[in-house]
Design a protein around this nucleic acid. Structure first.
Length: 290
DNA sequence: CGATTATCCTGTGCGC
DNA sequence: TGCGCACAGGATAATC
């Protein structure tokens, strides 16, 4: 459930609570959570200081004093929750970060789809291209090789990029929006909300969109994600999403279409429809969205 | 090659 | 009250 806005809130919370703190111990109890490489690799983070918390799409990037980057993804049911030192763990806690002075951080994930791994920890360092080494001095967190397949972060993507990636595609607009290779960070909820804001039906073929429609889609991507971040993300009925301090988001109160099948559209009053797109459902207003 | 479908997993809520 | 089952969906592998 967590998508770009929720992950961005978690990123900010982590920075506020743990930046500059020294990791005393990292204990892993869930094997599946660290499935990318040997769990022992994570022990190299112990003793290091958290120096930066970044994000690309739905991935969190924690950079440590020795230059290591810990990559985390919450997937469907993952939560990162602050806890007092020595506090008992909830069920489905798969990793506990114990900081020297900042307390603990618990990685809780009932469905175990989430994961964490040290970037570059599993593979040999590949040959560096000129691009890779071009500007390491600007302090920006370089994207790990494991995330090379991702498109630009949805907040960084330009309208031109969106136009190019939609051109000629037969796949539905919504499928392209949630395709992390096109833009990174958009999931099922925000794809529906973005299509609603852009007044474009989610099942329209990407290549069939006109210039102004692509423009509206790009603008909607920005405005919807920005507004969702201001509202600290969406916490749905399942109460799944929580920020690091356990608080819910409020953006669900501003949802125009997601989960609102049969309810009247706020603009025209027609009932919101729910359509099956593959295994997932898409919500839209049949009158306002074309 | 691009588009669709199955898979991973557990908690929840529904119908019977 | 309880049981079975569909559903939720992010990413990836497999398949059409």
């Amino acid at each position: 459930v967590p998508e770009l806005p929720e992950v961005e809130i978690v990123r900010r919370d982590l920075g506020r609570l743990y930046l500059g703190a020294r990791l005393e111990r990292l204990s892993i109890s869930g094997i599946r959570t660290v499935r990318r490489h040997a769990p022992e690799l994570l022990s190299r983070l112990e003793g290091q200081i958290l120096v930066d918390v970044g994000r690309h799409g739905k991935y969190l990037l924690l950079r440590w004093g020795d230059g290591e980057v810990l990559v985390m993804h919450l997937r469907m049911s993952g939560q990162l929750l602050a806890a007092e030192a020595g506090a008992p763990s909830m069920v489905h806690t798969h990793a506990v970060f114990s900081f020297e002075t900042a307390g603990e951080l618990h990685f809780v994930d009932p469905r175990t789809f989430g994961e964490l791994f040290v970037a570059g920890g599993a593979a040999e360092e590949g040959p560096r291209t000129a691009r890779d080494g071009a500007c390491p001095s600007n302090g920006a967190l370089a994207r790990p090789a494991e995330l090379a397949h991702l498109g630009p972060d949805a907040l960084e993507a330009t309208p031109a990029h969106l136009a190019v990636t939609l051109a000629g595609r037969r796949a539905p607009v919504k499928s392209l929006l949630v395709d992390q290779r096109v833009v990174a960070g958009i999931g099922n909820i925000y794809a529906d909300e973005i299509c609603s804001d852009a007044r474009v039906r989610p099942d329209r073929a990407g290549g069939s969109l006109g210039r102004s429609e692509v423009g509206r889609l790009a603008a909607a991507t920005r405005s919807v994600l920005d507004a969702a971040i201001v509202a600290r993300g969406s916490t749905l009925g399942d109460q799944q999403y929580r920020d690091v301090l356990g608080e819910t988001g409020l953006y669900q109160l501003q949802h125009k279409v997601y989960g609102r099948a049969g309810l009247p559209c706020g603009t025209c009053g027609r009932p919101i429809e729910r359509a099956r797109m593959g295994a997932k459902s898409a919500y839209f207003c049949p009158r306002c969205q074309r």
